[in-house]
């Protein structure tokens, strides 16, 4: 382990008692934080202090604390997941902060992610997008042998790159349009790249984009903030791929033969 010291910090934290309440920033002091602690462990310490004083602890989402479940979600000094690239809040460690520093902590700010309490937001809009088309329709038990369709390593690797998205929503929180394009395009790229995803390729991209629009997410204006804050390194290439697939699917739909005419 690298050598550990302790820090004293000032925290400005967004407090909001419930969805329809007015929120505000509250200032707290926290001391004796080990540089080896994670950011969430620092909040645990603060929460224990607050509980000891009979005050309500700060509610925040978290679960695995190893950077993979995608549940932790907070904006630290204006950056979703804080200052380190490629790191979720739960994997951010306090050695990246200075003694005496003031840290501002807010929830994800985006209309489709309404605040539930303090730093907790409602991200069910993401689930709805996946429900619209983020799957391959294959009945349990009906699959062919896994090695029947060879898939070039490069193709599998690209699908895997795209599949690494953890659905945390940092991309939306960072975007001035609250666009979910990076999230949606990650799933579209994973499934539309693989041979298994081809039969539903067009209907998938059309349905997912529609669900995204219906949920109130904005459009992409190519600023790349999402890519900058994504803890899993998802890139704008996926958005380009999705736009291509979307354009092709839309045109195909437009010129689609209507088949037999029925009276």
């Amino acid at each position: 382990m690298s050598e550990e010291k302790t820090l004293s910090l000032t925290l400005k934290v967004w407090r909001q008692s419930k969805a329809d309440a007015k929120g505000h920033f509250e200032t707290y002091k926290v001391s004796n934080v080990s540089t080896g602690s994670s950011f969430l462990e620092m909040l645990d310490i603060l929460n224990e202090d607050l509980v000891a004083q009979g005050k309500e602890p700060i509610a925040f989402d978290h679960d695995c604390r190893e950077g993979i479940c995608g549940m932790c979600s907070m904006t630290i000094n204006g950056m979703p997941h804080g200052p380190l690239p490629g790191v979720t809040t739960c994997q951010l460690h306090m050695r990246n902060f200075r003694d005496g520093e003031t840290i501002t902590i807010e929830p994800w700010r985006a209309k489709p992610f309404p605040v539930i309490k303090d730093l907790i937001v409602d991200r069910t809009a993401f689930d709805k997008i996946i429900q619209a088309g983020g799957f391959v329709s294959v009945r349990t038990g009906s699959a062919i042998d896994a090695n029947i369709i060879p898939i070039a390593k490069e193709t599998a690797d690209l699908a895997m790159d795209a599949a690494e998205c953890i659905g945390c929503g940092a991309c939306v929180a960072a975007c001035k349009n609250a666009s979910a394009m990076l999230f949606v395009s990650s799933k579209v790229t994973q499934l539309n790249t693989l041979p298994q995803g081809q039969p539903e390729k067009d209907r998938r991209v059309l349905a997912m984009v529609k669900a995204m629009d219906d949920a109130g997410f904005g459009n992409c204006s190519n600023l790349g903030e999402c890519q900058a804050v994504c803890p899993k390194g998802q890139t704008l290439d996926f958005i380009a791929k999705m736009n291509r697939d979307y354009a092709v699917a839309s045109i195909k739909k437009l010129f689609k033969s209507r088949g037999k005419s029925r009276k």
């Binding site: 799957f135 391959v136 294959v138 349990t140 038990g141 009906s142 699959a143 062919i144 042998d145 896994a146 090695n147 060879p150 898939i151 070039a152 390593k153 599998a156 690797d157 699908a159 895997m160 599949a163 994973q190 499934l191 693989l194 298994q196 995803g197």
Partner: peptide, 21 residues
Amino acid sequence: SIIDQCVAQGVPFAREYGGTL
């Protein structure tokens, strides 16, 4: 059958250059 099912769902397992798992 689990591996077959997961591959069919689009789980991107690691592959060899020849395209097999």
